[in-house]
């Protein structure tokens, strides 16, 4: 497990967990994204502390998914910047961001459905298994590939999927597919992991397992930011929560503050508490 921690977290001695270092690991300043006349994200700012589990919530259409897509490089921002480790990364390609350590997951079971479980994670190891074209051609990449395969197996073991390594993904039950999605992302050795609705569509038992896994990932030094509708999970899991409404920042703070904020309750129309609102959404 120590080896795992080292790989997932790029070493326990990493300086980003240092509390003295106040600079946020991920930060957005004045982020704006328009689609034609529609302003999906409007002058939105937030910052994510290293080592945190950071939630991004808001009513439907608040601009969470667009924000995620801008941070992860699928859209360029219309205005504003995104900073990762203090570097302006606005408008960089998704693959370049992954190489820097910013990796995202997708809603539902977005996987290489035609591949085996192991091959999915092997693709996730893309960055860790570099080799030149001719080395691959001559089979001289064998050692690095064997290492990558072993690491992929380890990642699967972390999720308890090691016995299913050779199964085609399409044979996997839904809950396992969701975990595999996480495994693929984790195989890319992220420093910050962006989770897109990791609990949506799960039963309470699956949600509980997933929460443990997300905590386990954080304990290995990976900063987690997630978009989620399941309010109970968000409240129990996150250290900090950012609430968006109409594309802009509404409130940011620890769960107990956000839970009781009148503006948040107002945004989730008519519900007494944010908890209830989550279930309604």
């Amino acid at each position: 497990m120590a080896a795992l921690a080292q790989r997932f977290g790029r070493g326990p001695q990493g300086s980003r967990v240092n509390p003295q270092n106040e600079r946020p690991i991920l930060e957005a300043r004045g982020l704006t994204r328009r689609f034609g006349g529609l302003v999906a994200v409007n002058d939105f700012s937030f910052s994510v502390r290293a080592g945190a589990i950071h939630g991004l919530i808001g009513p439907n259409g608040a601009g969470k998914t667009t924000t995620f897509n801008v941070i992860s490089g699928f859209y360029a921002p219309t205005a504003g910047q995104v900073f990762f480790r203090g570097l302006d990364i606005s408008g960089r390609k998704t693959s370049a961001l992954a190489a820097m350590g910013l990796v995202r997951t997708f809603q539902g079971s977005t996987l290489f459905q035609e591949f085996s479980v192991l091959d999915n994670v092997r693709v996730g190891r893309h960055l860790g298994a570099r080799a030149g074209f001719f080395r691959r051609l001559l089979g001289a990449d064998r050692r690095s590939e064997e290492k990558a395969d072993a690491q992929a197996q380890e990642t699967l073991a972390f999720f308890g999927l090691e016995d299913l390594a050779d199964e085609p993904v399409s044979n996997l039950p839904h809950g396992h597919q969701r975990m595999l999605g996480l495994a693929v992302a984790l195989a890319a050795e992220p420093e910050v992991l962006l989770l897109d609705e990791p609990f949506t569509g799960m039963n309470p038992e699956e949600t509980g397992r997933m929460m443990t896994l997300v905590q386990g990932i954080r304990d290995r030094g990976v900063t987690v930011m997630l978009v989620e509708h399941d309010m109970r999970a968000v409240m129990n899991l996150c250290d900090v929560i950012t609430v968006m409404n109409f594309g802009a920042l509404l409130v940011e703070g620890p769960p107990e503050v956000v839970r009781n904020d009148p503006a948040v309750i107002e945004a989730y129309l008519g519900s007494a508490t944010a908890d209830g609102a989550g279930d309604a959404a």
């Binding site: 992860s72 699928f74 390609k93 998704t94 693959s95 992954a98 190489a99 990796v103 995202r104 997951t105 997708f106 977005t110 996987l111 290489f112 459905q113 035609e114 591949f115 693709v123 996730g124 893309h126 960055l127 693929v184 992302a185 195989a187 890319a188």
Partner: peptide, 11 residues
Amino acid sequence: WQDRLAESVGV
């Protein structure tokens, strides 16, 4: 099969 997923892990 999934160019966006591939892109997200650094391809």
